[in-house]
Amino acid sequence: MRNEQEMFNLILKIAEQDERVRAVYMNGSRTNPNVPKDIFQDYDIVYVVTETTSFRKDKNWIQAFGELLMVQEPEKNDFMSGGDVDLEQNYGYLMLFTDGNRIDLHIQTKDYMLKEYQSDSLTVPIYDKDNCLPKIPPSTDKDYWVKKPIEAEYFNACNDFWWCLQNVAKGIWREELPYAKQMFALVIRPRLDQIVSWWIGMQHAFKISPGKMGKYFNVYLSKKHWEMYKDTYSDCEKTNFWHSLFQTCELFRELAMEIAKELSFTYPIEDDRNMTMYLYRIRELPKDANGIF
C-alpha cells in the first residue's frame, strides 16, 4: 500500500504537470488534527481547473493515480437521474485503488471554488499556481461541533422518540420485521443519536464533534453508556429485539434527563412512563389477542 507521502507526491505531481490544473486543496479527515490517522482515511482532494469538459471527455487521465478497483462519479449519476447538476462547474471521481488507497477527487472551476472554498472549516490549501485560493484560517473542525439545542429542539426530539416507539412495538408484535427494523433505524435511532450527541457536546462545552454518523461515540461516551449503546443493536429474534428496544429507552432516558438538568429543560417524564408501560403491555400481548389490554 502506498504511504501518505507517496500519495501526496503523486497528487501534486499530476497537478504540476497538467496546465489545466491551477490549484489544489484538501478537505476531510486528513485536515482534522483531532482525528486519529489510519490506513482507511480518504484523500479528499480538489483540483481547481480551467474547465471540466476535457477531463470528462477523456477519463484516461485518472489512470495516473494508480490501478483502479472501482470508480464512482456522483455528479454524473445525479445528472443521469434528472438532478439539477452543473457538470461544467464541478465534477467528481471517487476512486478506490487495488492497493487500498482511496482518493475522492473533485475538479472545480475557479468560479465554483470561490463560492465553496470558505464554506468548510476543514480546508487546507496545498498548491496554487496563480495565487487564486483565498486566504483562510488554519483548519479546524468547528463547523462540525455539536450545536447546543434550544428547548424546543430538545422537546421535539424527546416527543418524537417516545411517540414513534409505538410503531416499532406494533411492528414487532405483528412480526413485520422490515417495518419494525426500519422504523427503529430511520426514526428511533436518529433521535437517540441526537440525544447522545447533545450529551457528548454538553461534556465539552459544545466544542466537539462526535464524528460523522456518531463514529466516535465509543470515544466520548462513558464505558457504561457505550455498553448500553451497543445493546441497542439486535438481530432478528423477537426476544432480542425487545431487549434492545428497552435498552434504547433506558439509555435515552438517562442521557436526556442529564441534559434537561444541565440546560434547565423539562424532561417529558409522563410520556416516558406511559409509553414504557405501553411497550411492556405490547410485549406480553398474545398474538391472537382480540383487544389490546
Results as ranks from 00 to 15, higher is better:
Asp130Leu: 11
Lys110Asn: 11
Trp173Gly: 01
Val187Ala: 06
Pro125Thr: 01
Leu192Cys: 01
Ala157Asp: 12
Leu186Ser: 10
Glu116Tyr: 14
Gln166Tyr: 04
Asn90His: 15
Cys158Gln: 11
Val168Gly: 00
Lys115Ala: 10
Ala180Phe: 11
Leu192Val: 03
Pro178Val: 00
Thr109Ile: 06
Tyr179Asn: 09
Phe184Tyr: 14
Phe161Cys: 01
Asp128Ala: 04
Arg174Asp: 09
Lys142Arg: 13
Tyr127Pro: 07
Leu122Cys: 02
Gln194Met: 03
Ile103Arg: 13
Asn131Thr: 02
Asp111Pro: 00
Tyr93Lys: 12
Lys135Thr: 06
Asp84Leu: 11
Phe184Asn: 12
Trp163Ser: 08
Asp193His: 09
Ile172Ser: 10
Trp162Val: 01
Asp128His: 05
Asp130Val: 11
Ser121Thr: 03
Gly92Trp: 15
Asp160Gly: 07
Val168Ser: 01
Phe161Val: 00
Asn90Ala: 09
Trp198Arg: 08
Cys158Ala: 09
Pro149Trp: 04
Ser197Asn: 09
Ser139His: 09
Val124Arg: 14
Asp160Ala: 13
Val124Leu: 07
Asp130Ser: 10
Ser197Ala: 14
Val124Cys: 04
Glu153Leu: 14
Arg189Asp: 00
Trp198Asp: 10
Trp173Arg: 02
Glu176Tyr: 04
Lys129Arg: 13
Trp163Asp: 02
Lys110Ile: 13
Leu94Ile: 02
Trp163Val: 05
Lys181Gln: 13
Ile195Ser: 03
Arg174Phe: 05
Ile188His: 02
Tyr127Thr: 02
Asp141Phe: 12
Asp84His: 10
Thr140Asn: 05
Phe155Gln: 15
Asp141Arg: 15
Asp104Ser: 12
Asn167Ala: 04
Lys148Leu: 11
Tyr179Val: 08
Ala180His: 12
Val187Cys: 02
Val124Thr: 08
Leu114Thr: 10
Asp104Glu: 10
Thr98Arg: 14
Ile103Glu: 09
Leu192Pro: 03
Gln182His: 03
Tyr127Arg: 05
Lys135Arg: 07
Asp193Val: 02
Gln108Phe: 13
Asn167Ile: 04
Glu175Phe: 06
Arg189Ile: 08
Met95Tyr: 09
Pro134Gly: 01
Asn131Ala: 03
Asp193Ser: 06
Cys132Ile: 15
Glu88Leu: 08
Tyr91Ile: 07
Trp173Asp: 00
Glu116Thr: 14
Lys181Thr: 14
Asn101Phe: 12
Gln194Leu: 06
Val146Ile: 05
Pro137His: 01
Trp199Asn: 15
Pro178Trp: 00
Trp145His: 08
Pro190Ile: 08
Asp143Pro: 07
Ile103Ser: 10
Gln203Arg: 05
Lys129Asp: 01
